[in-house]
């Protein structure tokens, strides 16, 4: 049979996987299975059957799962982008179900995140740049949204107002630090929408960023959210002001999205006429 897209295996991989298939067939669970699966995983971290069988063997042998996690730390850093590495961790943490393990995991994630963003941490960068690299971390913004609004941890209705004010202050501060960071603007939008707070309440904050005379392409992202203060305000005058900004985006500052801004202009104008 002529296979499609055959992989030209090395002898080492072929031997190890032949052996592995034999073990799976016999149902053996022993410490040499742990050695063998680790060997295969190091050659091919996406070998999901090896991961599955390894997990089954760990449970069957009552192996200490926290030790397995520490072994996985090294593998996770090496194979940061392989799904199975993280899936396995998740299974281990669920099985361990302990506070110290969860704490160790958070510490590990901080280290791993630093590895993932290592490109930012090059010598010669200023502290401000490091901070900006951090505020641009979109996953961190998502994580914050979950912790603040979706995790179910809150003290009661009294808190809602306080939480919103705190989040607005936090986000505005980060925007001031790096105004052309769309992650922060999206978060601002997200908290306003989630708390059903009208966009018009932040007009005074946003307006200074709404200059239509900006020309630097690096700053074009800033202006993208400038429809915010005007869009939901009552009356035609504010809509016309938003339209004016969108026109400058479409024609000068953000021409890649010309058609998107024209679509927004059309929508806004037709809603006035209604």
């Amino acid at each position: 049979m002529n296979p499609i897209a055959p992989i030209f295996y090395t002898e080492e991989y072929k031997d190890a996987t032949d052996y592995f298939r034999g073990i799976v067939k016999s149902g053996e669970t022993s410490s040499r299975v742990l050695e063998l699966t680790e060997h295969i995983i190091r050659m091919n971290p996406a070998h999901y059957s090896a991961w599955q069988y390894r997990y089954k063997t760990l449970l069957a042998l009552h192996s200490p799962l926290d030790e397995e996690l520490r072994l996985m730390d090294a593998l996770a850093i090496q194979f940061l982008k392989t799904y199975q590495v993280w899936h396995h961790r998740r299974l281990l943490l669920t099985a361990l179900n302990s506070v110290p393990a969860a704490e160790a995991e958070l510490a590990f994630i901080r280290r791993a995140v630093a590895v993932d963003t290592k490109n930012y941490y090059t010598p010669g960068r200023t502290d401000k740049e490091l901070l900006e690299a951090d505020v641009r971390n979109n996953s961190a913004w998502h994580h914050r949204f979950f912790v603040v609004f979706q995790s179910g941890v809150r003290k009661g209705d009294e808190d809602r107002e306080l939480v919103l004010r705190r989040e607005l202050a936090f986000t505005k501060e980060k925007i001031a630090l790096a105004p052309n960071n769309p992650s922060a603007w999206n978060y601002l939008r997200g908290i306003l929408e989630y708390t059903k707070t009208p966009f018009s309440t932040i007009t005074t904050f946003v307006e200074p960023y709404a200059s239509t005379s900006r020309s630097s392409t690096a700053e074009q992202e800033i202006v993208i959210d400038l429809e915010n203060p005007y869009l939901r305000k009552e009356g035609g005058a504010s809509t016309m002001k938003a339209v004016e900004i969108w026109r400058s985006l479409a024609n000068v500052h953000d021409t890649v999205r010309k058609k998107y801004w024209e679509h927004r202009i059309k929508d806004a104008l037709s809603s006035i006429q209604k």
């Binding site: 993280w86 978060y187 989630y194």
Partner: peptide, 30 residues
């Protein structure tokens, strides 16, 4: 669905899942 307008791999589930989830955002699926 996420507040940004896109959709995540999975909904925000239990707190434990979050650590793994946060990570999965970094992963570029091949």
């Amino acid at each position: 669905s996420s507040y940004e307008g896109g959709y995540g791999q999975t909904p925000f589930g239990e707190a434990l899942g979050m650590s793994a989830l946060m990570f999965r955002n970094f992963i570029h699926y091949q």
